[in-house]
């Protein structure tokens, strides 16, 4: 198996993981399960409402930086990074 294709598969695994989290915080918590989560409260926020209007956005930001960091590591491990 060539290094390029193992790099690509590792990349796809990482993307899949990130997109599962992306889906869970927005579509699942913010829309599908919103009524159930609204019975839990943090301060004045109902939890489902909080995910839809605040929590999902914070998670998205963290996800992109997590992905960028992990990809940087993958690039070097598989020796496909720029400036070498």
């Amino acid at each position: 198996m060539s290094d390029k294709s193992s790099y690509w598969r590792a990349n796809l695994r990482l993307v899949a993981l990130c997109l599962v989290i992306w889906f869970v915080v927005s579509y699942l918590f913010g829309i599908i399960l919103v009524d159930e989560l609204n019975s839990i409260r943090i301060g004045g926020y109902k939890l489902g409402f909080w995910f839809a209007q605040q929590g999902s956005i914070y998670t998205f930001v963290a996800l992109i930086f997590f992905y960028a960091y992990r990809m940087g590591k993958l690039d070097r491990e598989h020796d496909v990074h720029e400036d070498k």
């Binding site: 993307v15 990130c18 997109l19 992306w22 409402f49 839809a52 209007q53 999902s56 998205f60 990809m71």
Partner: peptide
């Protein structure tokens, strides 16, 4: 109200797709 969340999630969540699926 809560229904307006579509704008909040929709117009931020696209950046996750952009960063992982297209931009690089």
């Amino acid at each position: 109200g809560y229904g307006g969340s579509v704008f909040l999630m929709g117009w931020t969540g696209g950046y996750v797709l952009l960063a992982m699926l297209l931009a690089p």
